[in-house]
Amino acid sequence: MSIDTAKEAALLPALKQQDEQSFNQLVGMYYGAMIGLARSMVGDAIADEVVQEAWVSVYRALPRFEGRSSLKTWILRITANEARTRLRKESRTIAVEGLSPGGDGVLTGRFADDGHWTIPPSTWHEDSPDTLLTSTEMRDCIELTMGRLPELQQAVFVLKDLEDYGFEEICNILQISASNARVLLHRARISLFGKIEHFQDSGEC
């Protein structure tokens, strides 16, 4: 049992009674994951509001939580739904991008016809992720790049690589197919890879 699952199990009886202190603990546990997901779907400007709405829905629905998924998955699904509702209200929608060919964008043009590198990857100056991240410019650049990825790419990346979710749960939270999730994740990773490589080579974002 993971730490989160154990904590959830301990909190659940009180949460179902809408006990405020337990609820505050729950907010502390999952706020980071929710805001990450909300930002990825609606952008920074309204993510706070989406998360606030989502927590209100969670609070009201908790007595009826049936435990068919983990509490965290359930909460993130409510967040994703809240984000979609919000986008609909503003007449914006999230396109599940078509699985168009040439999805490895930033790497296009870097291979010969036989599939060998023509512009091979550069060795990064610092190979430890910790050292790489010490530069503020690099951090800002990563955030900027993340923010510019198409919404669902960001959302899948956040859930898989930052929150350690498996594909099954990601599909449950975002209501997309597993094959779409895999393609979106790969595109997000390749785009981020390309941006960091560019930053490493040029010192510019």
Partner: peptide, 11 residues
């Protein structure tokens, strides 16, 4: 490098 991306962002 590809592996380092996810590690960096997670940190």
């Amino acid at each position: 490098n590809f592996n380092a991306v996810a590690v960096m962002l997670r940190r």
